[in-house]
Simulated assay, not measured.
Amino acid sequence: MSKYVRLCPNCKSKSNENSSLRGCGYSTFLEENEYICEVCGKTVTDLKMLTEDYRILIKVSPEPKFIESMIQLQETDIVEYNLKMSQFRTQVQQQENSRAQAANTVKCPRCGSTNITAGQRGFSLLTGFVGSGKTVNRCANCGHKWRP
């Protein structure tokens, strides 16, 4: 796989599923550095943008004009481009960390609250001390109890 993004100049102007700003994965190898788009038949060109940078930009905003302006910025002012890419990398990393943290957070199955306490089941009039040593989660919002 190339370390640079390959885009089809013809699909680029269309706003459909095969838009080049989504990345043209439909290309057939012709000669040494020449590829053809299997969707429209035009020659696919390599941008001077790394695939890693392109993926970060898509995560920040899949808007085609945003991607095009970043490609233009890279060509005209590489220092400003690198500063912006550094900011975008930090932003994407923070988003991924917050998603991972949210996925690992315990929530009440009844109300969705994250205000959860864990403790011993305790004594019951019905069962007495049977099972009183087992751990249960309790929602501080609605009072729902469940096994961890």
Rank of each mutant, 00 (worst) to 15 (best):
residue 44 V to S: 01
residue 62 P to Q: 08
residue 64 P to D: 04
residue 72 Q to I: 12
residue 79 V to S: 05
residue 41 G to A: 08
residue 85 M to G: 01
residue 53 D to E: 15
residue 73 L to W: 03
residue 21 L to A: 00
residue 3 K to M: 14
residue 3 K to L: 13
residue 47 L to P: 04
residue 83 L to F: 06
residue 85 M to H: 08
residue 103 A to C: 04
residue 35 Y to D: 09
residue 126 L to T: 15
residue 1 M to G: 15
residue 82 N to E: 15
residue 113 S to P: 08
residue 124 S to E: 03
residue 36 I to N: 07
residue 72 Q to H: 14
residue 64 P to K: 04
residue 88 F to N: 06
residue 71 I to T: 03
residue 114 T to I: 10
residue 143 G to L: 00
residue 20 S to K: 06
residue 51 T to E: 11
residue 75 E to T: 01
residue 65 K to H: 06
residue 58 I to W: 05
residue 51 T to L: 10
residue 80 E to I: 09
residue 32 E to D: 14
residue 6 R to E: 06
residue 131 G to N: 09
residue 84 K to W: 10
residue 11 C to L: 08
residue 65 K to D: 08
residue 130 V to A: 15
residue 24 C to H: 07
residue 142 C to P: 07
residue 71 I to E: 12
residue 54 Y to E: 04
residue 7 L to Y: 09
residue 26 Y to R: 11
residue 6 R to Q: 02
residue 103 A to T: 05
residue 144 H to K: 08
residue 88 F to L: 07
residue 92 V to N: 02
residue 72 Q to A: 14
residue 129 F to Y: 12
residue 120 Q to Y: 11
residue 140 A to R: 10
residue 143 G to D: 00
residue 113 S to K: 00
residue 101 Q to I: 11
residue 24 C to E: 01
residue 17 E to H: 10
residue 69 S to R: 13
residue 136 V to R: 10
residue 132 S to Y: 03
residue 111 C to S: 07
residue 62 P to H: 03
residue 24 C to Q: 11
residue 16 N to G: 12
residue 50 L to A: 03
residue 54 Y to Q: 01
residue 136 V to I: 15
residue 45 T to F: 11
residue 72 Q to W: 00
residue 14 K to A: 10
residue 148 P to I: 12
residue 87 Q to C: 06
residue 56 I to T: 14
residue 34 E to P: 05
residue 51 T to Q: 09
residue 39 V to P: 04
residue 128 G to I: 01
residue 14 K to W: 10
residue 60 V to M: 08
residue 64 P to S: 03
residue 64 P to V: 02
residue 31 E to S: 15
residue 26 Y to S: 12
residue 139 C to G: 04
residue 19 S to Q: 13
residue 143 G to A: 04
residue 141 N to F: 02
residue 102 A to I: 10
residue 95 Q to Y: 02
residue 79 V to P: 02
residue 68 E to K: 14
residue 133 G to I: 05
residue 124 S to H: 10
residue 78 I to K: 13
residue 23 G to D: 09
residue 148 P to G: 14
residue 34 E to S: 11
residue 64 P to C: 06
residue 36 I to F: 09
residue 105 T to Y: 07
residue 12 K to C: 13
residue 59 K to I: 03
residue 115 N to F: 10
residue 29 F to C: 01
residue 4 Y to I: 05
residue 120 Q to W: 05
residue 90 T to D: 15
residue 48 K to M: 06
residue 99 R to H: 03
residue 1 M to E: 12
residue 41 G to P: 04
residue 30 L to M: 06
residue 89 R to W: 01
residue 140 A to W: 01
residue 5 V to G: 03
residue 50 L to T: 04
residue 126 L to F: 13
residue 55 R to P: 06
residue 128 G to N: 08
residue 65 K to T: 10
residue 2 S to N: 10
residue 77 D to V: 01
residue 72 Q to D: 12
residue 3 K to D: 15
residue 73 L to Y: 05
residue 95 Q to H: 10
residue 133 G to L: 09
residue 63 E to K: 14
residue 146 W to L: 03
residue 76 T to N: 12
residue 73 L to R: 02
residue 49 M to G: 01
residue 3 K to W: 12
residue 100 A to L: 13
residue 74 Q to M: 13
residue 48 K to V: 08
residue 47 L to E: 11
residue 38 E to N: 15
residue 90 T to E: 15
residue 33 N to S: 08
residue 70 M to T: 07
residue 100 A to Y: 06
residue 82 N to I: 05
residue 62 P to S: 11
residue 21 L to H: 12
residue 127 T to D: 04
residue 45 T to A: 07
residue 131 G to V: 02
residue 65 K to N: 11
residue 31 E to C: 11
